[in-house]
C-alpha cells in the first residue's frame, strides 16, 4: 500500500469506527416515531438546545486575549440573522465584520 505506518492506519480505522457507530446506531435501533411521547417531546427540543450550547461560550472565546473580538462577531451574526438575512449572508457578513475589526483596531 501507500507509504503509511501501519500503526497510524489502525488508529485511523479505530477512530473511524468509534465515530461512525454512535452516528449510525440510532437509525438501526429506532424506527422513528415509536418512542414515548415525552421522549419525542424532548427530542424536538434538542436542536435548539444544541445550538445554544454550540454557540456559547465558544463564540465569545474566538480570541482568548480579546473578548471584544468574539462579542463583535456574535453581534454581527445576531444582527444579520435578526434582520432576516439568509444563513450564507450571516456567515460572510460576520467574517467581513471581523476582518474589518482586525484591520482597524
Amino acid at each position: 500500500m501507500l507509504t503509511m505506518k501501519s500503526e497510524i492506519l489502525w488508529m485511523i480505522i479505530g477512530m473511524g469506527l468509534v465515530t461512525y457507530i454512535p452516528r449510525m446506531l440510532p437509525f438501526v435501533l429506532f424506527k422513528g416515531k415509536e418512542l414515548p411521547p415525552f421522549i419525542q417531546g424532548v427530542l424536538k427540543n434538542v436542536p435548539y438546545a444544541t445550538l445554544g450550547a454550540l454557540i456559547f461560550p465558544a463564540i465569545l472565546l474566538l480570541q482568548k486575549d480579546d473578548i471584544w473580538y468574539g462579542i463583535a462577531g456574535a453581534a454581527a451574526a445576531f444582527a444579520a440573522a435578526f434582520l432576516g438575512a439568509n444563513v450564507i449572508i450571516v456567515v460572510l457578513g460576520s467574517i467581513t465584520v471581523l476582518a474589518l475589526y482586525s484591520y482597524f483596531l
Binding site: G52, A53, A58, G73, G84, S94, I95
Partner: peptide, 30 residues
C-alpha cells in the same frame, strides 16, 4: 473562525423569533 458559529446563529434566530420556547431552550443550554 467565526464562520461555523455565525452559521449556528443564522439557523437558530429564525425559530427563536417565532417562539419563546426556542429562546428559552437556547439560553438555558448556553
Amino acid at each position: 473562525g467565526i464562520a461555523l458559529y455565525a452559521m449556528f446563529v443564522g439557523l437558530l434566530v429564525p425559530s427563536l423569533k417565532k417562539s419563546s420556547k426556542v429562546l428559552f431552550l437556547a439560553v438555558l443550554a448556553a
